[in-house]
Design a protein around this nucleic acid. Structure first.
Lengths: 187, 187
DNA sequence: CGACACATGTAACACGTTACATGATTTG
DNA sequence: CAAATCATGTAACGTGTTACATGTGTCG
């Protein structure tokens, strides 16, 4: 859904053809995510089918599109509606950790540590990028996207720390002793 | 990819059939994400094709599967490999904000505020869930998943605050004055 | 001329969702 | 008996990826 709406937003700046849309998108997110050119054309085809964009007369082998009024309405709806938690893709890392807890033969702390190292590494890379960033004041959107990645990364590392301490606490909390057995049978 | 690996992890506990896998998955993530039953069967079919699981003799209309050695190896690989930033889906919210900045006629602060309200609401809901959570010590994985959502949600709100202050700073930083005009033409 | 950027597309496939179709078993 | 739960699947569609095919223009 995000690509569809992104293309609409870019066309709101003015008519563009597929190749330009791809370049404009990647520029907008500061190269953080690339956009497959094939997807641009298939998405444009669907947008045209839904009458959210309309093709302009082609010239020199280029097929520019313009946004329609319906497209503009759809775009306004996108910006006016918050992205809910339920809209988001499943969190693969959370799923992985949750399943690791009940899968036999898995070294939980190793999984957490491996992920933690990757997180720290990513955070360093982001910090490096921010340091010798373009400096271009025009790249405000690039800064925001980068900062989003940093906030997420930090939150993930803190969560992994939480996981580790929770796991350790659980492990030390119930050493099986004779007393425990008595309590359990008594309950 | 996460469902594929999740099914392998669940089958590592022992043979199960499709319906059971779905229930077990949703239980593992504390009902945070639901799993479409149709997808379970199509994913099982692909896993069987790739020889990561094998069907057991069916009984009473049930088609249980067991994990194979290749499946076990694949699962071990999953747990040993960190999920990299590049593996993650594009962040729709970051994209939306980035595009909102360069789309004409968009009230940026309104977009940020709408999203912020939704974030606060979600956070309250999570806190409520945590409060009268199952209390079940067996639900450790449920606690971890919930906490992941809370960490993410908080990070998002902090990021939105960052966005707003950055946007405001930009807006007040360059009031177009006669002096500015001179500087620009001079540059 | 050859490499590279520009430009448009198609095919095949994985993953994900909703909806539909079917039947057995259990339980009020 | 009727409704709910258990259980298995298919179809259609959207989204996303990789790879392939094709052609123009430009520049060293």
């Amino acid at each position: 859904m995000s690509i569809r709406n992104s293309l609409l937003a870019l066309l709101e700046r003015g008519p563009m053809h597929g190749y330009q849309l791809r370049v404009a998108f990647e520029e907008s997110v500061g190269g953080t995510w690339s956009l497959n050119i094939g997807q641009v054309y298939t998405t444009l085809a669907r947008l045209e089918r839904d009458e959210l964009v309309a093709p302009l007369p082609e010239s020199e082998g280029q097929r520019p599109y313009e946004i329609t009024d319906r497209g503009r309405a759809e775009l306004a709806r996108w910006f006016a509606t918050p992205i809910e938690r339920s809209d988001r893709p499943r969190d693969e890392l959370a799923i992985k950790l949750a399943l690791a807890m009940t899968t036999p033969g898995v070294d939980l702390t190793a999984v957490v540590q491996t992920q933690r190292v990757a997180g720290i590494r990513a955070l360093q890379e982001y910090t490096r990028l921010k340091a010798h960033g373009s400096g271009d004041p025009d790249d405000l959107s690039w800064l925001l996207v980068l900062e989003a990645m940093i906030f997420q990364c930090e939150a993930e590392i803190r969560w992994l720390d939480f996981c580790e301490s929770t796991i350790l606490r659980k492990r030390t909390a119930r050493p099986v002793t004779r007393v425990d057995v008595h309590e359990e049978t008594g309950a």
